[in-house]
Design a protein around this nucleic acid. Sequence first.
RNA 1: GCCGGCGUGGCCCAAUUGGCAGAGGCACCAGGUUUAGGACCUGGGUGUUGUGGGUUCGAGUCCCACCGCCGGCACCA
Length: 951
Amino acid sequence: MTSSRPSDSASSIPAYRYTAALAAGIEQRWQNYWQENHTFDAPNPAGPLADPVGVANRSKLFVLDMFPYPSGTGLHVGHPLGYIGTDVYARFKRMQGYNVLHAFGYDSFGLPAEQHAISTGVHPRVNTNANISNMRRQLRRLGLGHDERRSICTTDEEFYKWTQWIFLQIYNAWFDPSISRARHINELIAQFASGKRNTSSGQAWNTMTPAQKSLEIDEFRLAYLSDAPVNWCPGLGTILANEEVTAEGRSDIGNYPVFRRNMRQWTMRISVFSDRLLGDLDRLDWPEPIKLMQRNWIGRSEGARVAFSSSAGAINVFTTRPDTLFGATFIVLSPEHPLVETLCTAEQREHITAYIAQASATTDTDRQDDSRKKTGIFTGSYAINPVTNQPIPIWIADYVLMGYGTGAIMAVPSGDQRDFEFARQFDLQITATQMPTGAWFDQHHFPPSDDCATWPSAFVGEGNYVHSANDTLSLNGQRSIADAKNLMNAWLTERNLGEATVTYRLRDWLFSRQRYWGEPFPIVYDQDGLAHDVPESMLPVLLPELTDFSPQTLDPMDSTSDPVPPLARVTDWVTTTLDLGDGPRTYRREVNVMPQWAGSCWYELRYLDPTNTQRFVDPEVEKYWMGPATDEHTGGVDLYVGGVEHAVLHLLYARFWHKVLHDLGHVSSEEPFHRLFNQGYIQAYAYRDDRGQTVPAEEVTETNGSYTYGNEKVTREYGKMGKSLKNIVTPDEMYDEYGADTFRLYEMAMGPLEASRPWNTLDVVGMQRFLQRLWRNVVDEETGALAVSEDAIPETLLRQLHKCIAGVAADMETLRFNTAISKLIELNNDLTQYVNSGHRTPLSLITPMAQMLSPLCPHLAEEIWALLGHSTSITFEPFPVADPNLLASDTIEIPVQVNGKVRSRIVVLVGASQDDLLAAALSDDKVIAALGGVVPARSIAVVGRLVNFVL
RNA sequence: GCCGGCGUGGCCCAAUUGGCAGAGGCACCAGGUUUAGGACCUGGGUGUUGUGGGUUCGAGUCCCACCGCCGGCACCA
């Protein structure tokens, strides 16, 4: 960073000017003060951090930042945006009397540290701890008001003990669909034992062996082992959750290829919560786009299951459009469909075998490629359309996936573009069931016709039903799709041919990772291979030390390789002798570890009661900070701020865990995060030379819209801060150059918190100048003496002050810090004019100004507060309240328009009526001139707003 | 392709929710101060509110169409 203030020669700069150096002294002094005085420690109502006196008679507020991963590269200026925002809000609310809980910890398990360990041989704990230290240092220098007693790391043994404990709660729970709730597994066992529930085999419970019982129960557990197709990523040596795989079929982290294959893995039965996860979104105060993304991900489809009879028995299809059943002219099965074998005729067998082989060699990604030509093959068999009673051909095509619905579709080519293209490709029948509108035909430049063999594409939309009747059912004529669906569903249900049903896109969550740096599962296997949970008294199951981080060399492209978890190599850890109630026996430990999401699924609860050794959180403490405010309220964090990138990963998983904990009675809140706010991103310009190489952004100069690096012309682009774009700006540089308060102010002033914007270091000076002017209004720059008077404040300035107070308080409440700052600058500019005209700053003005500044620039505000003679922190001073009498004035200026153009302004009393306004306007010289003697055809007067004459 | 968000001075952004297009910052210009530079002080708004239509006495704001950028989903049955 090249300094814009060359040779800060001490002689030319006043000794007490608010420079970066002066700010640094002030800031570090107050940071020490806050730490020594435990200023931001929030009292709990119960448990180890209990302080009932501190809690009494205060409203509570729980403010939360999304859990950061402690990155090795440290913070850049984009990272703290949300942290500053929550800090400003938390400080503002403290001044309004709230008991504010604001803590900050680290999501410190994860792949990057392990990858680093593999390449360096250094234990990931060493690297992780160093990264956390560096991040703590950077954040402390920012002056964030966190309760330091509550700073946790997911890698702490005391923390992951409880992560394992929660895993066991989930493991020992099942979902009871009859009440749509998770229950303890013992209640299921009781149902089996009493005969209230039948076992899957029909065998009586008390005649089953322990192993049989165990397998029966495992089918219900919310955490279970499954032999399901997984996303195998050889490049990372681990499997990944669906949410961690990009649309391109590559890993979210590292961008390695991902392959589908079967493996035995721990899985979370999140899918049974689909309905609640979807429905409760409506009860949350979240940005609509995030809710939409979760809704899309959960993917609820309402439709019908319809049975088509065939020589191989009934073929069940799922459709969202049962109303178009009359137009179903063929069936398409997924190549993996179990009935394919039975349905293919002898003469087609050879071709079909070849097609299936070809399809299985094609990745899911390719099969979902939109631009690909449709492929498929006829089985030779026919099914009966249940409404038309006509035989329709059964085809196989790879565009139908086994993983969605039933792996079989009824094709309605007239109403579905994919089916339409397929029918055209293979010359299959197309029957219209809905008549498109005239507009649709116009748009396609086509004469209206119900012969859809001639249509240019399928028609999707509302249209009159045609060709949709049999002896006992008719949909024909004008009716809504919903209406038609209901008629069809009722008809199908009555004849046992199908039923209305709902499917979800959300799959169960693959929960194991074949890595080292994660929480070990509290699970052991006996000699029969049956899983047992490790009792609570033996938690935590500690991660064993590992000295060899050498990677298992897997070819990222080799889909047939097998994962070998690093823990499998620690043989004396894997084999263990435990007494699980039936004497000491030898067990084999689970060698997979939990995914990184585990810790972040519940960390907010641990902030509440971080030192509790008896429970993961004291129930009374949880209820105080996160309990529902009313009967309808979900409970949860009062304000959760973070980036949009966690929309369907962390936010969905955490909601799921929280609901399980709620159902089992461990927490009173139904949702973890009641109000969510997405902050925008700070990005930065980057520059490339002729060869396409990025050049250091801070060394590029701009002249008249063109950019040069050295003598070379470079082109500008815009993107995330990072090493590859060479456009990183760090908070440390800002502290050195301007100080933390200026940096905080700039981050908050550059735009609304939710908006993304480009970083521009050159603009920061504007905020520094503001603070310098403010400082100069308080302190004599040359001597350091207080320059404040106790003289009365003139009325105009007093009115400006109260207007500012009202505006700033409203802006802070709604997180509009950018406009709050502009109002403070405005007031300070007014004050500066007053001071420059020979007055001194009135004490009664600077006092509320310091208070209003305090959330944004806490160090400077503390310093001014102390200079004004106060001996306690400004942190808990009440935020100023505007006097309504000083907000209103007696007169108001009203614009007068003639034909919508402003021609004059009149000054009237505030309460002036319409008639008063018109009379005053008509007697105004400029208005008379503009009217030119013409009597207005219409006169509009809006009280308090304007007057408009229409000629 | 579908869904969502956003387009306002050279740049980042305001605009009481339909009522005077401009609060604040950067940049820029002029003047003051200064040996000079920086800093500071005073003054200055540089515009077809992305484009085209519509509703209205009145549109940055509401409606329709289109263009551009960002994000999400994508043979989802």
